[in-house]
Nucleic acid binder design. Structure first.
Length: 454
RNA sequence: GACCCUAUCGUCUAGCGGUUAGGACACCGCCCUUUCACGGCGGUAGCACGGGUUCGAUUCCCGUUAGGGUCGCCA
């Protein structure tokens, strides 16, 4: 309706560069991004680098790279990690360290109107003594009263004695001056919201709409702190998770697409996402479900990307695939596609392709390298030696024929052969694996196994 | 201590007064199969507790308990 003037949505993600991006922060960024895309609004990235001592460009890059990895592109914000560098958007600068004058101006205004006052070198804001009521888009009606301590001293510091403005002040001033319409943030800020609303009112403007999203807890229900493994987005980036899997999983924490849907592309998440349907209770981070989703995405990944990620994971484990022909590497990895959920499983799963000497699983050796199996394996070695070409079908036929000759099931030969060539009782399809490995390596490994069986 | 939020299988969730309480992950069987994985079939498992309101509460209200958060010259 043309006569209804609806304000265009402007949301922001305002992280502090601490050197890592918390998984909960990543989800907050995601929800902001989703809401912006869903409403056709603007997603702003603002760096809250007021704590100068601890903020480095490197720490800012962690945030920037994390968001880029997730595919969360911001419409306004920094273009690089240099706080004094250029930004995109007309509400910059997007680093708080570059907005000092704004804060000073706002504080002066408060001071001159008697809404703030100096006390022991610091500036304190005259906080409302009455309960603050507001409607949260996720939580609903909230009525925040003063706590016992706050009743003793309701006012709070907005500028420290060293002249540095504090979080509550800068956060509100920036949201106000950047025309933020919806503040989507972690529930840990719900109690602070009364302060923020009081500040907005003191500046004579309506506060933005608030949406406090539930927190992400560890699987055991405890708070996910920096120390907890898996609390940092960086670990998922390093471990080779597919970003779309992480995004998909994060979106499912506190929100549901309904209809028993679990795996869905970003475009659908954007279409279905909205604030009112976000759950009110905290969610626990279940790595097993993330791994399952990741496996689903890896299975569908296009080959080139799969190769690239695989080679990277192998290299991280000290396996240099460059020493092998490209076609060999690709053929080897093809036998692993759809078999692993995580790239970090690859070194253990497919390492035998890229190591000339392999060690066999001790448990399996006892079970498979028996005196009874020795003549069978020896016979198979003979038959394989004559195979030309050494391909899947012939290998398959040979296993079957040799097994038949001994009057046993093919599986009886499959197990020791697999163990001899991979070192593991589990792995890629045996016939494909042998073909890729090539006759020379296969014979050599079977000989090695035979030597252990005497 | 005060204030705020929350409570459905182990976990993520669907449910919005009447359902055999549904799905997914995980787990356990069976099938498929050259191992594993995938896939298929089946199974174990849940409305925290106590009061109300109602003909009827998982669903609405109150309380209890439990969990989380906030009360900084941290962000």
């Amino acid at each position: 309706m043309a006569w209804i003037k609806t304000m265009k949505v402007r949301v922001r993600f305002a992280p502090s560069p601490t050197g890592f991006l918390h998984i909960g922060g990543a989800r907050t960024a995601l929800f902001n991004g989703l809401y912006a895309r869903h409403t056709g609004g603007t997603f702003v990235l603002r760096i809250e680098d007021t704590d100068v001592a601890r903020n480095t460009q490197e720490a800012v890059n962690v945030i920037l790279n994390g968001l880029r990895w997730l595919g969360l592109d911001w419409d306004e914000g920094p273009v690089g990690s240099d706080a004094t560098g250029p930004g995109k958007g007309s509400f910059g600068p997007y680093f708080q360290s570059q907005r000092k004058e704004n804060y000073q101006r706002r504080v002066d205004a408060l001071l001159s109107r008697g809404l703030a006052y100096e006390h022991e070198g610091a500036v304190r804001f005259k906080m409302s003594r009455d309960p603050v009521r507001f409607h949260d888009l996720v939580v609903g009606e909230v009525c925040r009263e003063l706590t016992d301590r706050e009743q003793v001293e309701p006012d709070f510091v907005i500028v420290r004695s060293d002249g540095q403005p504090v979080f509550h002040l800068v956060n509100v001033v920036d949201d106000l001056e950047m025309n933020i319409t919806h503040v989507i943030r972690g529930e840990d800020h719900l109690s602070n919201t009364a302060k923020h609303i009081a500040l907005f009112r003191a500046f004579g403007v309506e506060p933005p709409k608030y949406a406090h999203i539930p927190l992400i807890l560890n699987l055991d229900g405890t708070k996910m702190s920096k120390r907890d493994s898996g609390a940092s987005l960086g670990t998922y980036m390093d471990e080779g998770y597919a970003p779309e899997a992480v995004v998909n999983y994060l979106a499912l924490l506190g929100w549901s697409p309904k209809g028993n849907r679990e795996k869905l592309p970003l475009s659908e998440i954007i279409a279905l996402f909205d604030l009112p349907q976000i759950l009110r209770h905290n969610a626990r981070f279940d790595i097993a479900k993330l791994n399952w989703l990741n496996g689903e995405y890896v299975r569908e990944m296009d080959d080139e990307r799969f190769y690239e990620q695989s080679v990277h994971a192998l290299a991280r484990a000290g396996l240099d695939t460059n020493k092998y022909p490209v076609e060999y590497v690709k053929a080897a990895l093809d036998t692993c596609k759809g078999k692993v959920k995580l790239f970090s499983e690859l070194p253990a799963y497919a390492g035998f392709y890229f190591r000339e000497e392999i060690a066999c699983d001790a448990e399996a050796v006892k079970r498979e390298f028996t005196s009874e199996n020795r003549p069978r394996l020896a016979k198979l070695r003979e038959a394989l030696a004559d195979l030309e070409p050494f391909d899947h079908d012939r290998i398959s036929g040979t296993l079957a024929a040799v097994a038949k000759g001994f009057g046993v099931k093919t599986g009886v030969l499959v197990h020791p052969t697999r163990l001899a060539c991979c070192g593991n009782p589990a792995g890629p399809s045996l016939y494909h694996l042998l073909a890729v490995l090539g006759k020379d390596r296969v014979l050599k490994r079977i000989d090695g196994a035979l030597a252990q069986m005497s």
